[in-house]
Design a binder for these strands. Structure first.
Lengths: 196, 196
DNA sequence: CACTGCATGTAATTTGTTACATGATTCA
DNA sequence: TGAATCATGTAACAAATTACATGCAGTG
């Protein structure tokens, strides 16, 4: 499965829930899939155009101001095929952990600050997930899909709670560090290559 | 901080631990930072060349078969500056959750299989992290950086354990689902857009 | 002498982001 | 009537992946 197929999968999947405009599609991807997925704006319309060309998606009310895109039967079949392919593992790029890894260069205070921010963002995420969960559970039209959607909400909750637990542990570790060790200071020659 | 600055940060950071060849650098990034960071092969040499041009990295033994790259004093300062900048939040792209979200199209059996695989991969990750932790704790030359490095190992462990817990919960939920609801089957017209 | 691993790089292609351009509708 | 929101797209740019090309060193 090529990488762009993943975009196609997301777009087809969203349209399999209900037909909508490209704009609404983007909102949907940002707000609903946003916890575990992202598509940049500039990808959605080209993807829709291509899907339309292949007959996987149908444009309704063409000509009027806003078109509604709906998945076709062939599109639904294609979606099932795409979903059945092995998931691509996204290459991780965690900027916070990158900074903490080289934390000796950054000093314990800045590290503690990074951890604190990460903790807060996890708490915000938990609140947002609680809202999403309530919304899904309340929406009768989603009844048959709700169990699956809640699986992804639950994944986010587990992950966010783990982040909070880690952050608390990390803060304690850094507190211990600050009182015992000397933080790296700018200008203090902490084991650079020795060059220059 | 532009996106490529992150690559520069990773390369400078790795060289701040010890000077090494481009090849070793790549190994280091794959094996040591691999839990939370990735750089593709084709980025490392161009990044090194640019860093060398800017005097942030120095090439030793040039002319011989293998060069050793070392961070310079200016490079170390630059690294501190880069680390102090706010971390970029990577846009999430979780192929497993994308598939589960549209799980109705995929059917409970395939979903359960996806969850099982995710669980196993988390267990493998835990084993790998235990190995990494032991290695860091045993390496006396890393003594002053070990507390920071272990913070990132711990983050991975928390995350992997959360994944296992989620997977168990999800499996139970899917088991309940399979006996009560009819799975979507290919060809059965499950609420597609109705087109075609 | 063939094979494997170490080593350095380039080129083509694909992806992804961001900014821009444009215009309709709705609501205060 | 002015601002905000909905809506559809394009173009320029930045970044990342992958495959390719090359060659040395050690080992069996």
């Amino acid at each position: 499965m090529s990488r762009s197929d993943q975009t196609r999968t997301a777009v087809l999947g969203a349209l399999s829930i209900q037909p909508m405009s490209g704009y609404a599609l983007r909102e949907e991807i940002v707000s609903t899939l946003g916890h575990f997925w992202s598509e940049s704006f500039g990808q959605i319309y080209p993807a829709l155009a291509r899907l339309e060309g292949e007959g996987l998606v149908e444009r309704r009310d063409a000509g009027s101001r806003s078109s509604t895109f709906a998945i076709t039967r062939v599109g639904t079949e294609q979606l099932r095929t795409l979903l059945a392919e092995p998931p691509q593992i996204a290459k991780p790029r965690n900027g916070v952990l990158l900074r903490l890894f080289f934390g000796r260069q950054l000093g314990p205070d800045r590290c503690r600050e990074l951890v604190r921010e990460r903790r807060e963002s996890a708490l915000r995420q938990l609140a947002e997930l609680a809202r999403a969960r309530a919304e899904v559970e309340a929406d009768a039209s989603l009844a048959d899909q709700a169990p699956y959607i809640l699986l992804t909400v639950s994944a986010g909750e587990h992950s966010a709670r783990a982040t909070v637990a880690w952050a608390d542990e990390a803060t304690a570790a850094l507190d211990g560090l600050a009182t015992r060790a000397t933080p790296a200071r700018a200008g203090a020659g902490v084991a650079d290559g020795g060059a220059e």
